[in-house]
């Protein structure tokens, strides 16, 4: 399996490449006032409005720094249901089997998207499941909002 690596703070995380449609450079995002924590706003993706989730804001509480290595990843969690993720230092790939990942000893209830972990030369990498970034209710609300804003 191919994984895209990115960073939250100093730690490294991985997204399954089969969940991703495209990796884009960081772009201007239209903000949504009163949006839940982690929602940076919406973007116009080739005529389709997608909600944008800032992973750094969601997990650490501060927005991603605008750098060249900070990118927008278009993720598809179900057919036709896509959203954009802003991830810092998303410029490396990792080739691993699903069996190389082990469940961590500690799980965090507030962050169900944190998955199993693996190791490489530079340390620990944790698998992020984009399907679990939000509960279904928040997800539905997001798409409603994105549609209305478009």
């Amino acid at each position: 399996m191919l994984f895209i690596l990115f960073q939250l703070g100093q730690d490294r995380y991985a997204l399954d490449a089969s969940n991703l449609v495209e990796i884009l450079p960081l772009a201007q995002v239209k903000a949504l006032p009163h949006a839940p924590v982690g929602i940076a706003g919406i973007i116009d993706y080739h005529g389709v409005t997608l909600p944008v989730i800032d992973l750094s804001d969601l997990a650490l509480g501060h927005p991603s720094v605008a750098r060249i290595s900070t990118r927008i990843l278009i993720a598809e969690i179900a057919t036709g249901r896509r959203f954009a993720l802003i991830a810092e230092r998303a410029n490396r790939l990792l080739q691993r089997d699903a069996t190389d990942f082990v469940e961590p000893e500690v799980t965090v209830e507030a962050a169900p998207y944190l998955g199993p972990i693996t190791r490489d030369d530079s340390g620990i990498v944790q698998w992020i499941t984009p399907q679990k970034l939000f509960s279904n209710a928040v997800c539905d609300a997001l798409y409603q909002q994105a549609r209305e804003a478009a």
Partner: peptide, 25 residues
Amino acid sequence: AAQLLDREVDATYLAQSALEIRTVR
């Protein structure tokens, strides 16, 4: 190379890439 990619970007860069993403294929 990673250090080069860590350069901060300005508003022109953000606007330019937003335009590219917006363009209907």
